[in-house]
């Protein structure tokens, strides 16, 4: 049966998520992980791991930043810490972090997460031969490509079934630079500020944009929601369903996770119905923030349409 990976913004939300059916809580510290709902300091992360384990569930910690020299030197100690507190798995996207993990013989399973770069079974197999136990497939890989990919991969894969999809990461403070140029100082350009950009001649678009210590991040105009496609996701054999609550706070996200967990269970039991889909979509619509919208992203795009 598929396992659900859900991001957490607090220990309290993690408790709701595990109760809602999440199998893995995804968390981390923004010095090492990308685009997290909350940056867990080490003491807080220790408490989180204990709480999640007490609930019989697992913790996946993000170590998927693009590291420069200053931070790669800290990665070894951080991975040792994660092993010491019994984290179940880490996600890594920088080969330098894999090199550290293996050089220091730290027995932590890792999921390879190179964001948009993970696009083929052969690449996933490369990382599998380098110790990866799972891989996060890019959201830009559509169903038509997932079918052959899933026939060839040798390790479990994870796929985004709900949440914001990052489409750009810059090392530059693009918002601060802009506001400096137009001399309109803004106190905040972080995620909580809630900024968007829209493309030329497409005023209906609304790409979330914010800055943090890892640079500037831009997200797809609509968040991914594959609830209506879960029968096909299930049939593909995708083992990890990733739900990202970066822009969906607290209880709202837990409700959405619960809907997906219910769907997962129904599919496993052969009880997938159109009524269940309709109910789930209502739950998602009711709990998606009022300034966000969802669609199926790249899932149904014909691979031949992409130039």
């Amino acid at each position: 049966m598929a396992e659900i990976i859900a991001t957490a913004d607090s220990i309290e939300q993690a408790a709701q998520l595990t109760a809602a059916g999440a199998d893995y809580i995804y968390a981390g510290e923004d010095e090492f992980g990308l685009r997290l709902p909350h940056s867990f300091a080490r003491a807080e992360l220790t408490d989180l791991v204990q709480a999640v384990h007490a609930a019989g569930k697992k913790v996946l910690v993000a170590v998927n930043a693009i590291f420069h020299n200053d931070r790669i030197g800290e990665v070894g100690a951080y991975l040792q810490f994660l092993h010491a507190i019994a984290v179940d798995m880490v996600s890594i996207g920088d080969p330098g972090a894999i090199h550290v993990l293996q050089k220091e013989s730290i027995p932590l399973p890792y999921l390879y997460d190179g964001a948009d770069l993970v696009t083929s079974s052969r690449q996933i197999d490369f990382w599998a031969r380098h110790g990866a136990v799972a891989a996060q497939v890019a959201p830009e890989v559509p169903y038509g490509e997932l079918v052959p990919l899933m026939q060839h991969v040798t390790i479990p894969v994870s796929y985004l079934v709900y949440g914001a999809s990052a489409i750009h990461q810059s090392g530059r403070p693009l918002l601060d630079n802009y506001f400096s140029f137009v001399k309109d100082h803004q106190e905040r350009t972080d995620r909580a500020r809630g900024l968007f950009i829209s493309a030329p001649h497409k005023p209906e678009t609304h790409y979330s944009i914010y800055e943090d210590r890892n640079g500037t991040h831009v997200f797809a105009t609509n968040d991914v929601n594959l609830f209506g496609e879960l029968d096909r996701v299930h049939a593909l054999g995708i083992h990890y369903w990733k739900l990202d609550g970066l822009f969906v706070p607290g209880q709202q996200f837990s409700q959405i996770v619960a809907a997906f967990a219910h769907a997962r269970d129904a599919l496993a039991a052969g009880q997938w119905t159109s009524a269940l889909v309709a109910d789930g979509q209502h739950v998602i619509a009711d709990n998606t923030p009022v300034n966000r919208a969802t669609d199926t992203g790249f899932f149904d795009i014909d691979p031949d349409e992409v130039k």
Binding site: I72, V75, A97, H99, K103
Partner: peptide, 9 residues
């Protein structure tokens, strides 16, 4: 590639 450990990999 932004760090020496990546280069070593």
């Amino acid at each position: 590639s932004c760090n020496y450990e990546t280069l070593n990999f």
